[in-house]
Design a protein around this nucleic acid. Sequence first.
RNA 1: GGAGGGAUGGCAGAGCGGACGAAUGCACCGGUCUUGAAAACCGACGUGGGGCAACUCACCGUGGGUUCAAAUCCCACUCCCUCCGCCA
Length: 432
Amino acid sequence: MIDLALLRREPENVTAALARRGISPDQVQALLTADIEHRALMQEAESLRAQVKDLSRQVGEARRAGDTARGDEIAEASKQLGDQERAATARAEEVGATVRALHLQLPNIPSPDAPDGLSEDENVELRQWWPGMDDGASFPTYGEHQRVAHWDIGTELGILDLESGARLAGSMFPLYRGDGSRLLRALTQFALDAHADAYEEIRPPSVALTETMMSTGHLPKSEDDMYAIERDNLWLIPTGEVPLTSMNRGEILNVDDLPLRLTAATQCFRREAGAAGRDTRGLLRVHEFEKVELFAYCTPEQADEAQADILSRAEGLLQQLGLPYRLLDLCTGDLGSASARTFDLEVYTPGVDRWLEVSSVSWFRDYQTRRANVRYRAESGTALVHTVNGSGLAWARIWAALVETYRQPDGTVKLPDVLAPYLAGRTTLTKR
RNA sequence: GGAGGGAUGGCAGAGCGGACGAAUGCACCGGUCUUGAAAACCGACGUGGGGCAACUCACCGUGGGUUCAAAUCCCACUCCCUCCGCCA
């Protein structure tokens, strides 16, 4: 949630900032109006409440003094006021619920640095990288043997079995086998080891409570994209961001512990409602995938650095894997609703000839922690911490990029040597 | 799944219908003393909302209820501990 106090103080600025991402002034005004009404009703209810409390105190005093008649009299008066108070509180709560609903619907205020734009077409490409670029090499050219889609390579080598996955759980639930399965495991380990110098490794639950999903902004906004386990009031997590952001919910962190950096490998579950049909072949878009997440709680001053660190780690992994990629600065219209600034990393996959998003590195300001109530002790009082996160990296698409990029003319796949330690030295995938 | 016990401020822990936002100890912070520190002593010391302010409201695991009045009584739920059962 955005800061309501800020909205009251600087309504024009906030309205203008939100307009950059397509929020109409009317929507902001509706919240402001409801808020004013709510506060007036609340004051009325509170003053009645104060009177009831005062009378109740007098009842006690009178009875202790032995004046029962007077006690009863005051109790009766208090009872009457109590009825009024209940009615006033009910009215205040009704409007309060409206305020909360409107407040939850407002997305985060975009960073002034985020480029303007209405859709993903206006995202700004900041740079590209490919192997040998620093030495003057040009973007790689790919041979015919690399222009084969990963689902065909996977079938041919017996390392990806989409049909079996579909038989078990429906389409878009991939099943990897043999070296394909092993490759996934290797990638996770490779990444976790790379981040172990500065990020504490966490193994969180794969499900979360409704309350937890609220904190990150995934609910109520994206309910249709989540898998729900209704009987137990649980949701399958769509990203490791969910448990990591809520890990310290309701706590006051020691400022000396900030930035508090965490990393976690988790399964990620996404219904991808409305995505049916397009870009869904093979591993392009799946309901379940594994991802290593990088996360930090930090002070506002540390946020830039924290975001830059996650971005450079994600890039570092792509470079070590030798996969060409491009870096996008998301425009205001394409920003996730909780994010103030997001950089996307897209890897190039020669077989399907596309750029695939494999990491989204975002700064959320205090939008998430205002809901999760994670604070630190500041100069005076407490302040909300900022959250930053990004993938490092999402493996399904990396898996696709690796087998397509490193396919040899003879049909085998020769993986980069950095993975050798995690594959017991066997970096060549051959037909079983 | 069954039986019992518990959940209170940063921590420990009292309170069990009315003056309780809450004793006490520890920790933390400010001060006195000291060359400095420790000890001792003095003081301050939960969070959030509303109000220009005086001030006021909410919060004692969560949600309901009883009452003029609830940390305190009642109901439901969650979590933790002990024991029993089942189990990778």
